[in-house]
Design a protein around this nucleic acid. Sequence first.
RNA 1: GGGAGCAUAGCUCAGUUGGUUUAGAGCAUCUGCCUUACAAGCAGAGGGUCCGCGGUUCGAACCCGUGUGCUCCCACCA
Length: 876
Amino acid sequence: MELSKNYEPSLVEDKWYSHWMAKKYFKSVPDSRKAYTVVIPPPNVTGVLHMGHTLNETVQDILVRRARMNGYNACWVPGSDHASIATEAKVVAMLKDRGIEKNSLSREEFLKYAFEWKEKYGNIIYGQIAKLGCSVDWDRVSFTMDNEYFAAVIKVFVDLYKKGLIYRGARMINWDVVAKTALSDEEVEYKDVTSKLYYVKYKVENEDDYISIATQRPETIMGDTGVCVNPHDERYTHLVGKKVIVPLINKAVPVITDDYIDKNFGTGVLKITPAHDINDYNIGLKHNLAVIDVLNEDGTLSQEAQILVGEERFEARKKVVELLKDAGLLIKEEIYDSRLGYSQRTNSVVEPKISTQWFVKIKELAQPALNAVLSGDINIHPGEKFLATYKYWLENVKDWCISRQLWWGQQIPAWYDDEGRFAVAENEEKAKKIFNTQYAIPNAHLKRDEDVLDTWFSSWLWPMQVFKGITAPGNTDINYYYPTSVLVTGQDIIFFWVARMIMAGMEFKNEKPFSDVYFTGMVRDKQGRKMSKQLGNSPDLLELIEKYGADAVRFGIMISSPAGNDLLFDESSLEQGRNFNNKVWNALKLIKIWQNKSVEESGIPSKEDNDFAVHWFEERLNEVKTNIEILISQFRLSEALKQLYSLIWDDFCSWYLEWIKPGFDQTLSKQKIAKTLYFFEELMQLLHPFMPFITEEIYHQLKERDDDLTVKQSSGIHDKNQALLKKGSLLKQAITAVRDARNKHQLKFANKIDLAIQTEHKVNYNGIQNILCKQVNAGSFRFEEASGGITVVVNADKFFIETENKIDQSFQKEKLLKDLEHLKGFLISLAKKLANDKFVANAKPEVIELERKKKTDTHDKIAAIEQSLRQIEAGI
RNA sequence: GGGAGCAUAGCUCAGUUGGUUUAGAGCAUCUGCCUUACAAGCAGAGGGUCCGCGGUUCGAACCCGUGUGCUCCCACCA
């Protein structure tokens, strides 16, 4: 069959993915081999994959495919996350578009819609993962709300409660007024904002005096239950113990003292609003102040506010300011820069709010998680960058608020009776039993907690739960696959997810969930913004695959993104990937042409004077193979890909194939073709984890075969032969130098030249003369000192390029003089270095040896150039 | 307020135990090529005070300090 002019991914990709699936290559079943396990960071079912996911999945696929080819039982578990609050927000918005209000639905009706949403978007995501070529085991797809998973989350909740690690209590939490739910600290994002500081008069009770208090949130003054100053602030000592009047509602509140107050900030007086600020809350607790919540759950003013009831909070702020002005109680306004917390999901300003919620006591879980990393049991890549962050967070982490006032998620397994007593159990029946034994209430009338759990309370079980390990004791998968090998994820969820998975692993399995963590950087747009669905600044993955092919997308995203480094996404690297595909494709076409020619036995066999090329390339291949082995074990994937790219494009295509290329009327010997096929196959095998589709296609194009590259086991490597590599680089240098000279002197390639070489080391040219001549179109080659023509110096050898054409000597003289100047300077620096006793005394022997060699070489080169210059002078 | 990271060619980035006055790649630029695999290509070329300053060292893009600029994380200053 005729091969297409350019590589066409669309003709290849789906075909091979279906084939791999049909052959069940990605399916993993426990066996006698060692497992290499990866669990995918489950994408949220809120939408589609962006470039950050693409980078993530590509890294995982490279590691997994490579492990598979190295004889491991590779298992990559796909799945998705229900993403409680994010998805619920999406579903609510979707319903609204259809004219349906969430609160007009029952819980069950709402969940039906939510599951429909999950089906739709979950499948889009899975489709993208497949398009990208990910070798996941589709029989193991897991979802954080699957029945078994659901049950495991509930069981974990109950267990932790029994251990006393979960409690219910009223605490100040972060409240999202749009989603009307509590948030964990980690779900709050702080942003710099410019706001105002209002200075308000608080009159002293029964006196003419007043004090000025600065506040950012005048709308909460109705919740003030005290005013606080520093005990050592003389300005206010006379007021301590007295009362001041809260403006607008004319309520008297006490003036108290606390060391917390900074005398130098604002007016040195803080109004205490315990319901709406964490500091105020703590001070209030200490001094027994009342808590008055002036906000409703939706962020409007409550009855407690007494005035402006029902007004939205920011609207209320404006109105309060107006009222204060009218009453003559506003002293001044100041522009003020501060930071405000925003809900990660709804982007609304978060309200600190006192609320009864469920919490996990995190300190006890944190210690083992910290130890696992500090002891080196778990290795983080790149370590130096994230270790400190991880440590700091775990050492300072506060209790985790896990209840959410939502429907989409695992409903909290707690049952209440009418009097507010409650029992935690897996189901209502068990809860009833607890009521019976604990409170002596048989047949209690119970109502389940309305709230669901934080989505991370389910995803922290991911590495063990995807093997159904907790709820299915008979299932031995988990023992085989756990702990998993490597976790690949973005650095932005180190606290949300990575740290908590380690906690869960240590707590529930008494073992780490993974051995290595690979943090990818953030993929950003040209303006440096993180790519996210919210911003809509990520290109569509399927469109990119359509345009460049999946292999090119994988190549482009990998080529310059070492672990942990951010990446400004640039489509030109995808173009580079596409061009690379094409290059490989064309190499295939060339080899096939040779193959066919050889089979037909037409033409004269080539002179077989190019064995050197074969030996040399074998050596280069071996060298890069070794490097890649090391690089991948260090998780330096982009560096490995880069070496491979250069090996294929430069060494294989530009050098090797040209070196062995037969003349017009010649053919290659069968052995040489076989050898070339072998090289090409090896290259494809090395490249396969990075670019699975084209490599598989080529593997089959090269030969009719029943086996597939995807599961081909890699072969070994042998010791390096430095001499061959050195000779190869001499050959390359010589060819480039002569070609350069040709270019400079406008000697077209078609103009044959004669080559004379003056060298002390004729042996260096053994076996490469013919290649050299062919590559520079030289008609003859001899060892001899010559004159006239063009002289170039390669190492210390002088090349005389003889030609019929007239040569302008000034060009080469200029070049030689430039080289000479440089080499002389170099020689001086070398001489200085070697004359330095300290250098000779301190440097490693091999370094000194190298410097000495350099000196001799440079010396020889200079001599050669000087001689050439003399000859040119004489010639002119 | 605390902490981390980054600063290398016009652009996007590599450069992992400090060792060539000569620091790499892709894109872009320049020169020459429709050379029978590839113009998404071939053969070459040009382009860099490795952010500034100081230090350690025989030797620094790399280690230390400091300054500047950018990014990120954490934190309860009204």
